[in-house]
Computed example of a mutant assay.
Amino acid sequence: MNQNQSGFTKQMARNIFYGGSMFFALLFAVIVFDTESRIPERSNAQAITPGVIAGKKIWETRNCIGCHTLLGEGAYFAPELGNVYKRRGGEFIKAWMQAQPTGAPHRRQMPQFNLDDQQLNDLVEFLKWTGEINTEQWPPNIEG
């Protein structure tokens, strides 16, 4: 059987490959564009205050992400904090931070960062702001 009688030639295979590649590249571009266009409405950027910025700086300089996750990013040694404000509230977060380390047996201990009242308020404001980002149901349950 020669090449023309087989029904499927190298040229056809090449066309399918290039056509499929172009289709999926365009589909990927459309999905990226759609996602990027939704960021402003989902990001909660309008609620960023100087306190949120200061709280984020505390989050970063104390390397909280080295143990905790925030919106799914970070380490998994300690709880997800993307919705901690909704779960526990600001006063609980401040009291928890001030009570560290708890000395609970058989439990990894969180360090004492010796944050002052303003730093605690800023960190709580950052965590509150983070909890108001439209994450489309992440984390999947209230306990993170």
Rank of each mutant, 00 (worst) to 15 (best):
T35S: 10
P50V: 11
F17T: 09
E80Y: 03
R42N: 11
A54D: 03
L26C: 12
D34K: 11
F17H: 00
C67I: 06
A45P: 01
I58C: 02
M22L: 15
I53M: 13
L27W: 05
A45G: 02
V30F: 14
M97R: 08
G90I: 06
S37G: 01
S37E: 03
R87P: 02
K86S: 15
D34L: 14
R42T: 11
Y85N: 07
K57Y: 11
G51W: 02
G51S: 13
F77S: 12
R87M: 11
D34F: 13
R87E: 11
G74P: 05
N83H: 07
A78D: 07
C64W: 05
T49H: 05
A45D: 09
L81R: 00
R62S: 15
A45E: 06
G66L: 07
F92H: 12
G89A: 09
A54E: 05
R62Q: 14
V32R: 02
E36R: 10
R38H: 12
I53N: 00
V32P: 00
S43L: 14
T35N: 10
A47V: 02
E73I: 12
V84L: 07
E80W: 04
K56G: 14
F28A: 15
P50R: 09
L26P: 00
E36M: 08
I31N: 03
Y76A: 09
P40S: 06
A47H: 12
A45K: 05
L26E: 00
I93G: 05
N44Y: 05
I39R: 01
G20T: 09
F24L: 13
N44F: 08
W96M: 09
E60T: 13
S37P: 00
G66V: 13
I48G: 03
I31P: 00
M22F: 12
N63A: 14
D34M: 11
T35E: 09
I93L: 14
L71C: 07
G66A: 14
G19F: 06
G74K: 01
C64V: 12
A29L: 15
A54T: 08
K86V: 11
Y18F: 15
S21Y: 07
R62D: 09
Y76V: 14
N83A: 14
C64G: 03
S37C: 03
P50K: 07
L71E: 04
V30I: 12
E36D: 02
G89R: 05
R87A: 15
Q46R: 10
R38N: 15
A29Y: 04
G51E: 13
Y85T: 10
H68I: 12
A75T: 07
I58M: 01
S37Q: 07
M97T: 13
V32M: 13
P79M: 11
